[in-house]
Design a protein around this nucleic acid. Structure first.
Lengths: 196, 196
DNA sequence: ATAAATACTTACCATTTGGTAAGTATTCTG
DNA sequence: CAGAATACTTACCAAATGGTAAGTATTTAT
């Protein structure tokens, strides 16, 4: 590996954009952090927005591989949901910046969100088909699949990435609480999903 | 009412901070929007951060009154949750910037989030006691009350305020979809909460 | 009538920011 | 070994940004 600077920039940018926000992170901040000059960044990525797009691509890939790695095609019914929730929480603990960036971009829209939306719609399409099949098999409660997924997505990502709300509830966002939050989220979803 | 400029600034700032973000909104933008000069803003609010704190206070008040206005103390069990979810969706449709700002601040932490946290912890304390009472009465499923609230909060606010995720699911975030999302979210929560 | 407070505006300003231009050291290629 | 591509750095820069200083018109208080 000759340099790896390009990858180091990408990693730092993902961490900074995902945790502190895009506007709150200047190229100079990143450069100082990396011990290089701002122009080195602009050599590898033609503009700040181009860098953002690259970080989004990386984040989507990481999220995708985390989820597809967890999705055991053998698993049926709620087991599969459980696997996915576990994987999501694991990612939130290991690399909070990835989910942070996804949330950030999905909220503010703009040019960059188009890429994210199209990348995620593939995953979501699979998910919709899975949920529909489970409903048809009578294992999941009958609800509108897409709305259901939106609620599940919001609940999981929200619980996994909202430390301030946890603090307001009197829970410290440490690892132990996160583990408990994961367990409770799974129970919550189990109750909501499984057909009587 | 002599001027009202102070209030107009506050309204515009809440809308801009809540929808586009704090960093993404410059005082010049706000000033042009209002047809005044930037220095008029700094006359009423000593700094941009002071303005942010004022908008947070306003947003918390609006959220609080929307929720307390909906909370019928007579209502028991799931009815009360339903009222609250309806009120939250109504607020999301009427003034999306309020929930937007709450989410924004709760995510990024910082100085301002302390005020929000303390203001919200009162509401959440009431909510925790309510949920505990319902569990004790056997009307709600037994789950950890605070984690449950976190999941409910995340699901509702997420569904109500994530247009991009809705788009990725192939749903246009218009009023009709929002009404459907509300109905489905309520059904989802009903299934998750109500004890067998 | 005069002083003083209120509600601004015009005029600046230092810093930060994303970005360009040009130079330099190093490595690869013919 | 010459030249070209790669991977940077130093040197700038125009625009934007939050904020200060000072002036002005209007209303209020004495």
């Amino acid at each position: 590996m000759p340099t790896g600077t390009r990858d180091r920039i990408l990693d730092s940018a993902l961490a900074a954009f995902g945790m502190r926000g895009y506007d709150a992170t200047s190229l100079d901040d990143l450069a100082v952090d990396l011990g290089i000059t701002k122009q080195a960044i602009l050599y590898h990525y033609s503009s700040k927005e181009a860098l953002l797009e690259a970080t989004i691509e990386l984040a989507v890939n990481e999220l995708g591989s985390a989820l597809s790695g967890a999705a055991n095609p053998q698993a049926r019914g709620f087991e599969r949901i459980e696997d996915l929730v576990r994987a999501t929480f694991s990612l939130a603990a290991r690399r909070p910046e990835v989910l942070g960036l996804v949330r950030l971009v999905s909220r503010q829209g703009g040019v960059a969100s188009g890429k994210l939306a199209s990348a995620m719609s593939v995953m979501l399409g699979d998910a919709v088909r899975f949920v529909e099949a489970e409903m048809a098999a009578g294992r999941f409660r009958r609800l509108e699949p897409r709305m259901l997924l939106l609620a599940v997505y919001s609940a999981v990502v929200g619980v996994a990435t909202e430390p301030e709300v946890m603090r307001a509830l009197g829970l410290e966002p440490d690892l132990r609480s996160l583990v408990r939050a994961r367990r409770e989220t799974i129970e919550f979803l189990r109750a909501a999903l499984i057909a009587d």
